[in-house]
């Protein structure tokens, strides 16, 4: 079967600062700040480090990862805006860099930050976009009407977009990307900055779009979004795919499922043996003053853990239970929280 999207060993190094990708409301990227800081010392930023990916047609595929993981750069490469230093990317068999025009016919792109034409009204933005793709005039108007209505923008259809709220601009950006009925829709952090109600509307619309046989690739660092919306997820960190599968597969891949994080008052180098023998514990990752315990149960294990730590002669200063989730998975693979 021909893949909707395929990349092989994509590598991208920015010699200057990486292109600004807009500010996400979730913590505005302390990692990005750190990235920039590191950059000013070393000069280069590795955005993609051998990223390989396959997306089957008809799927909603999620790229999940923290800020600065390489999600936006991946979308940039696939949408012809970023030239990789090495590696290849295909959209439906068209090599994205060599056959840009053919690839661009098949894709619709919703950027992280709305990039609407401030000299036009909402309707004109949709209509002109469709005209760029050669869609006849009557059909342009018809599609614009349907999309404006579906995105609850019909009342403001003839207003200039300059006065639109962020959420309205985001909705219009998505409507614009759908105007030419692309086979593949790219959405870069689509629900960032949307209120919960609009987010649900957006999820519905994305599912409807998929139901018509289209492929959707979205980037997100919102676990809930990835979990409920995506058929498959690739977890990206430091420019690489570190895990890929359905949400269920990914979650079941965590040893034990539950993650119990313990923090001690002082280093406890020999505690692993005591913890591993406890019922249900499958794996223990020890670092200086903390231990990540993977187990098939959560709460029922707490008393036994507390006793084991006390027997080792150290004080327990914090204990945290995470239920099976993508967050736990991310922690498992990277040792960092997705929200960091």
């Amino acid at each position: 079967m021909e893949m909707a999207i395929r990349t092989r060993e994509l590598r991208k190094v920015y010699t200057g600062p990486p292109p600004t990708t807009g500010i996400s409301p979730f913590g505005a990227g302390s990692l990005k700040a750190r990235l920039l800081e590191r950059l000013s010392k070393k000069g280069d930023t590795v955005a993609l480090d051998g990223l390989t990916l396959e997306v089957e047609p008809g799927q909603i595929f999620g790229l999940l990862g923290p800020n600065g993981a390489g999600k936006t750069t991946t979308v940039g490469v696939l949408t012809t805006r970023v030239r990789p230093n090495s590696g290849e990317a295909w959209i439906r068999g068209y090599e994205v860099w060599q056959q840009q025009v053919q690839a661009k016919r098949l894709i619709g792109v919703v950027p992280q930050r709305p990039n609407l034409d401030f000299s036009l009204t909402a309707r004109e933005i949709l209509v002109f976009h469709a005209a760029y793709f050669g869609i006849p005039s009557a059909e342009r108007q018809r599609r614009a009407d349907i999309l404006l209505d579906r995105f609850h923008l019909i009342d403001r259809a003839n207003d200039m977009v300059l006065g639109f709220s962020e959420g309205m601009m985001q909705r219009l950006s998505i409507a614009r990307a759908m105007m030419h009925e692309p086979e593949l829709l790219f959405l870069d952090e689509p629900s960032a900055g949307l209120d919960p109600q609009t987010r649900l509307l957006l999820w519905d619309i994305i599912r409807e779009y998929q139901a018509r046989g289209k492929t959707v690739l979205l980037t997100t660092h919102n676990m809930e979004e990835a979990d409920t919306l995506c058929d498959r997820i690739a977890i990206v960190d430091h420019g690489k795919v570190i895990a890929c599968g359905t949400p269920a597969e990914l979650k079941s891949s965590i040893p034990g499922g539950y993650l119990i994080q313990l923090r001690f008052s002082q280093p406890a180098p020999d505690i692993s043996a005591r913890l591993l023998v406890l019922p249900g514990v499958t794996q223990v990752k020890l670092s200086d003053e903390s231990a990540d315990v993977y187990a098939d149960r959560g709460g029922p294990l707490v008393t036994a853990l507390v006793a084991a730590v006390a027997a080792e002669g150290v004080d327990l200063i914090d204990i945290h239970i995470s239920t099976p989730s993508l967050e736990t998975l991310f922690l498992h693979h990277t040792g960092r929280s997705l929200r960091q």
Partner: peptide
Amino acid sequence: RKLSYIVPKPVQPAAAGTQKGINWKA
């Protein structure tokens, strides 16, 4: 409100899909 604008025959823009050639419509 459903996205029901699928057309029986999808509009396929005229060739002009070559890499360097100009797409006059666009």
